[in-house]
C-alpha cells in the first residue's frame, strides 16, 4: 500500500493527516467564501438548505453510523430545536445567542430521555420506539396552544448585537460557519475516546461492556449529542425560514436524514456531508429536470412528481443493496485505486 506511513500515535490521530489535506481544505474554504458572489439567490438558497442538512446529518451519523443505535425520530428533534428557539425568542424575548444553544440543550435533554429506554431496547425495538416518539411530538405540536397548531408560528429574525441576518447571502456565510464548526466538532468527537467507545458499542455492545465501557453512559451520550446537533439544525431552519409548521418535521424528514447518511456513508464525517449535499440537491435537480421536460412532454411532469416521493426510498434501498459503505466508501476505494495503479493492491 502506497501513501503515508504513520510512525506515531500522534500522527495517526492528527486532524489533518497530510499537507495535501490542508491545501485542499484551504481551497475549499476559499471557494465557499467566494462562490456566493457568482451564484444567483436561488442557488444560494439551495446551498443554505444543504448547509443546515449537513449539521443534522452529522448528528444522526454520530448516533446511527458510529454508535449503531437506530433512530426514526430525528425529525422530531429538529422540531424540538425549532420550536424552542421560536418560543424562547418570541415569548421570552431572548436574544439569538441564548436561544440557539438553548435549542440544542433542550433537544439534547429530550434525546437523553429517549435514550434511557434505549438501554433496554435494541435494534428494531429501538426503531419502533423512536418512530412512536416522532408521532407523539408531532401530535403535541399540533394540539398545544403555545405552538399554534398546523398553521405554524412566526420566528423572529436572527439578531446578533446590531447585525441582523436578512438576505440569502448573509445567511449563507452565517450558516456555513455553523456547518464548519459542526464538522470540526464531529471529527474531533469521532477521533477521541468517546468516538472509539461509540464504535466499540456499535460493533459488539456486550464485548464493549466487557472491556469496561459504560454502555449506559455512552449510549445516552450518543443520543444527547445527536439530538444536540438536530436541535441546532432545527433552530437554524426556524430562523432561516422565519415561519415553522409541525408538518415540516414529520417522518419523511427523518427518512430523508437517514437516506443522507446511508447514501453518504455510515460512520464517516465525510459521508454525512456528501449525503446531505446530495439528498438536499436531488429535489432541486428534479425541479430543474421537470422544468426542461415540461416544455416537450407536459404529461411527463405528473409522473416525475410521483417519482419524487419514491426517490429517497429507492436511494436507500439501492445504496444498502449495492454500496453499504456509501459515497465515502466509493471515494476511499477510488483513492486507493488511484494510488496503487496499475497494481491491484
Amino acid at each position: 500500500m502506497g501513501g503515508k506511513f504513520k510512525t506515531s500515535y500522534k500522527g495517526d490521530m492528527a486532524l489533518f493527516q497530510t499537507l495535501w489535506v490542508k491545501v485542499w481544505l484551504g481551497i475549499l474554504a476559499a471557494a465557499i467564501v467566494v462562490c456566493p458572489q457568482f451564484l444567483s439567490t436561488y442557488q444560494i438558497s439551495i446551498l443554505n438548505e444543504m448547509a443546515i442538512a449537513i449539521i443534522g446529518a452529522l448528528g444522526l451519523n454520530l448516533l446511527i453510523g458510529y454508535t449503531g443505535q437506530i433512530s426514526l425520530g430525528h425529525g422530531a428533534f429538529l422540531a424540538i430545536g425549532a420550536y424552542t428557539t421560536a418560543l424562547a425568542a418570541g415569548e421570552l424575548n431572548l436574544p439569538f445567542i441564548v436561544t440557539l444553544p438553548l435549542s440544542g440543550f433542550m433537544a439534547a435533554l429530550l434525546g437523553m430521555v429517549v435514550g434511557v429506554p434505549a438501554l433496554r431496547l435494541k435494534g428494531l425495538y429501538l426503531a419502533l420506539g423512536t418512530l412512536a416518539f416522532g408521532f407523539i411530538v408531532d401530535y403535541i405540536l399540533f394540539h398545544w396552544d403555545l405552538t399554534q397548531g398546523d398553521m405554524g408560528m412566526a420566528v423572529n429574525p436572527v439578531q446578533i448585537g446590531s447585525w441582523s441576518v436578512q438576505t440569502e447571502k448573509e445567511f449563507f456565510y452565517f450558516i456555513a460557519c455553523f456547518a464548519a464548526l459542526a464538522t470540526l466538532c464531529a471529527k474531533n468527537i469521532a477521533r477521541s475516546k468517546i468516538g472509539r467507545n461509540f464504535i466499540a458499542i456499535r460493533d459488539r455492545d456486550i464485548a464493549a461492556e466487557a472491556m469496561g465501557i459504560s454502555l449506559a453512559k455512552y449510549k445516552i451520550m450518543a443520543f444527547g449529542l445527536s439530538s444536540f446537533y438536530a436541535g441546532i439544525a432545527g433552530a437554524l431552519v426556524a430562523h432561516y425560514q422565519k415561519w415553522i409548521v409541525p408538518g415540516s418535521f414529520d417522518l419523511s424528514l427523518s427518512i430523508a436524514y437517514i437516506a443522507m447518511i446511508i447514501l453518504g456513508g455510515l460512520g464517516t464525517v465525510l459521508g454525512s456531508i456528501l449525503g446531505a449535499i446530495l439528498i438536499t440537491g436531488i429535489p432541486h435537480g428534479i425541479i430543474y429536470a421537470t422544468d426542461v421536460a415540461k416544455e416537450s412532454y407536459p404529461a411527463l411532469s405528473g409522473l416525475i412528481v410521483d417519482f419524487k416521493l419514491g426517490i429517497f426510498g429507492l436511494i436507500v434501498v439501492l445504496a444498502l443493496l449495492f454500496e453499504p459503505q456509501g459515497l465515502a466508501g466509493i471515494y476511499r476505494r477510488a483513492k486507493v485505486y488511484w494510488k496503487t495503479w496499475p497494481f491491484k493492491y
Partner: peptide
C-alpha cells in the same frame, strides 16, 4: 438489523410512489 429495516422503509416509499 439496521440495513434490513431501512430497506423495508425504503420499500414502503417506493410502493407508495
Amino acid at each position: 438489523v439496521f440495513a434490513t429495516i431501512m430497506i423495508t422503509v425504503g420499500l414502503a416509499s417506493i410502493l407508495t410512489s
